[in-house]
Simulated assay, not measured.
Amino acid sequence: MEEVAGTVLVGESFDPVSGRVIVEDGHIAAIEEADTESTDIVLPALVNAHTHLGDSVAKEAGVGLSLDEAVAPPNSLKHRRLAAADTEELVAAMRRTLRFMHRTGTARCLDFRESGPAGARALRDAGEGLDIDPFIFGSGGASVLDIADGYGASGANDDDFAEERTAAAAQDVPFAIHAGEPDATDIYPALDLDPDLLVHMVHAEDEHLDRAADQGVPIAVCPRANTVLSVGKPPIRELLDHTTVALGSDNVMLNPPSMLREMAYTAKQFDVTAREVLGMATRAGADAAGLDTGVIEPGKRADLLVVDGDSDNLAGTADPVRAVVRRATGLDVKRVVR
């Protein structure tokens, strides 16, 4: 048994409770209200709802390029760098990125892994023995599902993914797809595939949002990456009003995959509350992949982030939720409990 004490952000509304989380056998056994001398803030460990960890071999390479030039398959700078990297180099680079993510508060990430079964296997190897667990959306044909946790499609205008969608459904694993990043032309074709997760939706219009709501499709947004690639700003307020919205950092080549940075940017640039942003960065991403984490309540997996509420950066803040979302940095992270 382990006790994690401090101001605990409890439940889906992240209510601050002075007390401790009781952890047994990797799960939350109880939350006990009690006076505590700890100034720590205890919240769900962060879930990055969209990454491309293979980009770890091309950090900063895409800055100043268009979307197609930087990341579009098959001939973008990203894909050329991936093709040039040998497996050992790729695994080592992704492993370092995973370690960085863990140190900045992330316990799970939903990764779109290129390069078919070999690419999925490389990410499995990169995560071996680490305290952060990548959920792998594989690509390159249905056979990748023998290794991956789900299927991640590049976009409905790039290929016909009907076979991969059918295979994912048959194996009861999620099917995710990019949509609405450069423009809106691929949104309806993506929705026609009845996906379990849409990524980006920058150019979603009212009719797209209504259909996503009708189908109950969650959406992962990546606002910092959208800014770097100059594709626009996702309509996060409207998306939240229609469906579940999760937060991701997207390509490692464009931005460091820090969910603390992503939360602060989102909270300050969009019409959203701090609690909404924290939900996007925790339970929404977990729910999208069917992960038993992302909220502090009895029975849930004990993936916890402990932040130093008395750090030089956070001391004196009045609202622990706002403090974590808008101010916290990797220097404020004390540990991630998994």
Score class of each variant (00 low, 15 high):
Ser230Asp: 15
Gly285Asn: 11
Thr282Trp: 02
Glu238Phe: 00
Leu239Ala: 01
Ala204Val: 07
Leu254Phe: 08
Gly285Trp: 03
Asp210Thr: 12
Met253Trp: 01
Gly294Glu: 08
Asp287Gln: 15
Arg275Trp: 07
Ala267Glu: 11
Ala225Gln: 08
Thr244Phe: 00
Asp308Ala: 13
Cys222Gln: 07
Ala225Gly: 10
Leu240Arg: 04
Asp192Arg: 12
Ala225His: 07
Asp194Ala: 15
Pro257His: 05
Pro257Leu: 07
Glu238Gly: 00
Asp210Trp: 00
Leu304Gln: 04
Leu291Phe: 06
Leu197Pro: 07
Asn313Thr: 15
Ser311Trp: 06
Val277Trp: 02
Ser230Met: 14
Val228Leu: 12
Ala274Leu: 01
Val277Ser: 04
Arg237Ala: 14
Ala302Asn: 11
Asp292Lys: 12
Pro218Leu: 07
Lys300Tyr: 01
Asn226His: 14
Pro257Trp: 03
Leu278Asp: 15
Gly232Val: 04
His200Ile: 13
His242Asn: 04
Lys268Glu: 14
Asp271Thr: 11
Asp194Arg: 13
Asp214Cys: 01
Leu240Phe: 02
Ala274Ser: 15
His242Val: 00
Leu239Lys: 04
Val277Phe: 00
Ser249Ala: 13
Thr244Val: 14
Leu247Gly: 06
Met280Tyr: 04
Ala289Gly: 13
Lys268Cys: 07
Gly290Thr: 09
